[in-house]
Design a protein around this nucleic acid. Structure first.
Length: 493
DNA sequence: TGAAATGTTGGGGCG
DNA sequence: ACGCCCCAACATTTC
């Protein structure tokens, strides 16, 4: 058999280490043609949002460099994936197409037809994994269904050996006789206007090398304190690996292996509490992806189907204030501004802002999810869907509806000195810690001393917390009563 | 990976 | 010395 090149189709696996598809492509010493296809039509409604495209641009630049260092090029194409793969195969004489599976139901559906089309042309198809620790098909509860509660899910996942990362990339790749035509990355205009993205680099450094550095740095510097520090938004206590994991610059099994290796080296066995809590977060990511694959319509519909009839209000003014960080609640506004300016928000604050949006403002969770989707550089359909449905009380293992965060108490608990608020809401920076999370309680003289004009440069609260809470609880109560009345025949009490 | 309301306990001031 | 009240601290229940 003639040894034509293998097409190595990069998707959400923008790395060379621990890359099963790359390993398969080079297995027989044949040339490799790396290709990335921007296929927005295939992703439909969930094509990468504006901030995510910024990260993608940087990650593709980094991947181009990594490949160049090995004598290879990254071929860029835009349009229908199948057409481009078939065309590239014909053009290069490729005999095989290799890729790693994307943990997304739409992509998996497309891949079924794609494999058939490629096979029909006599192409060998080699598909790897790596995006998840376990196969969702294989993780099932005793009755054969998917888990809907995190703890038993994660216990099941951790049981038994996990796969280890595959070998790192070879130092050189065999080049084809001739490189196919490639788009220029700049012409894709993935990066938003400069003035919006100016501070995005604060959210992290796209690319595999940066992700590896970040992981090593986190393990050495922050992991042991992660159990408590991860909830303090003013600290750099989280791993900040979410975007790298989303784009597959890093695999969860690489993360797992690095944490275990560090635990062994430090002699803390089985592992420190910080390491334990950190791996649990990797577990939540795993849980989110399994759920999305088992329940593919959850990005648009609540997992608890009855919530489809919940009477959310949809108010443009309230949503504008929330998006713009002008709700009058400092911790909420700080989070929303951090998001807009850096493309990233601390996870504790994601929960606070989401709870405020769905409970205090009674806005539909999907509207909030859509905003996060567009503004987060780490926007991930599985994680975003799980997080918002969890906050709204309509998802898997969800917070009960009556669990309503109080942004003042959350602020005082997790940002006690107000350092996070001062950083992102500078007009409040000179308030004393006692008032930083409740400026409306300040005396006129205290406001004047801090240079704050309430209702002027910083808004008064757009909703009273007690009223908002009671409105939300009332909405839940009447909705449940109406449902019971309507479904009395079908649903025995 | 809540918050608020309500209940309980125990120390200390005081008559 | 004692009972009473107040209230903080903590626990439990309810939303």
């Amino acid at each position: 058999m003639p040894e034509g090149p293998a097409l190595l189709w990069f998707r959400r696996d923008l790395r060379l280490d621990d890359n099963e598809a790359l390993r398969a492509a080079v297995a027989r010493g044949r040339p490799v043609v790396p290709v990335f296809i921007l296929d927005e039509a295939a992703e439909g409604r969930w094509a990468p949002g504006a901030a995510s495209r910024w990260w993608l641009h940087g990650s593709l630049e980094a991947l181009t460099q990594e490949l160049a260092a090995r004598g290879a090029r990254l071929i860029l194409r835009r349009g229908d994936s199948r057409e481009h793969l078939l065309a590239l195969a014909a053009e290069t004489g490729a005999r095989a197409v290799c890729w790693n599976e994307v943990p997304d139901p739409a992509a998996r559906r497309c891949d079924v037809a794609l494999r058939a089309a490629l096979a029909a042309q006599g192409l060998e198809v080699l598909v790897g994994g790596g995006a998840l620790l376990r196969s969702p098909e294989a993780v099932r509860n005793q009755s054969g269904g998917p888990y809907r509660v995190f703890t038993p899910f994660w216990r099941h996942c951790r049981h038994g050996e996990l796969e280890l990362p595959v070998a790192p990339a070879p130092r050189t790749l065999v080049a084809p006789r001739r490189w196919p035509r490639s788009d220029t990355l700049e012409t894709w205009a993935l990066r938003p206007s400069l003035d919006w993205a100016a501070e995005f680099p604060a959210s992290g450094e796209p690319g595999e090398a940066g992700a590896r550095r970040r992981l090593a740095d986190f393990i050495a510097r922050a992991m042991d304190a992660y159990g408590t520090d991860r909830d303090r938004p003013a600290l750099d206590g989280t791993s900040r690996l979410s975007a790298a994991l989303h784009f597959g610059e890093l695999t969860p099994r690489q993360v797992w292996a690095a944490v275990e290796a560090a635990s062994r080296e430090s002699g803390v066995m089985p592992r420190s509490r910080g390491a334990q809590v950190f791996l649990d977060e990797v577990g939540w990511r795993e849980f989110a992806h399994h759920l999305l694959l088992h329940f593919p319509d959850t990005p648009e519909r609540p997992l608890r189907a009855e919530y489809a009839s919940f009477p959310w209000r949809r108010e443009a003014a309230a949503q504008d204030a929330w998006r713009g960080g002008r709700t009058g609640y400092p911790i909420v506004d700080a989070g929303m501004r951090q998001l807009w300016r850096t493309g990233w928000m601390h996870n504790r604050v994601r929960m606070i802002t989401a709870s405020f949006f769905v409970k205090q403002l009674l806005q539909p969770w999907a509207d909030g999810a859509a905003w996060f989707w567009d503004t987060l550089v780490d926007a991930d359909l599985a994680n975003n869907t799980l997080g918002w449905q969890w906050s709204a009380g309509c998802g898997a293992d969800a917070a009960p509806y009556f669990r309503i965060f109080n942004p003042v108490l959350q602020g005082e608990k997790f940002d006690p000195d107000g350092e996070y608020v001062r950083r992102w809401v500078p007009e409040l920076a000179r308030l004393p810690a006692r008032l930083i999370h409740r400026p409306w309680e300040a005396e006129p003289a205290e406001l004047a001393a801090a240079g704050v004009r309430l209702g002027g440069d910083y808004p008064r609260p757009i909703v009273d917390l007690r009223e908002g809470r009671e409105r939300a609880l009332r909405a839940l109560e009447t909705w449940q009563r109406d449902r019971r009345a309507a479904g009395a025949g079908k649903e025995p009490a």
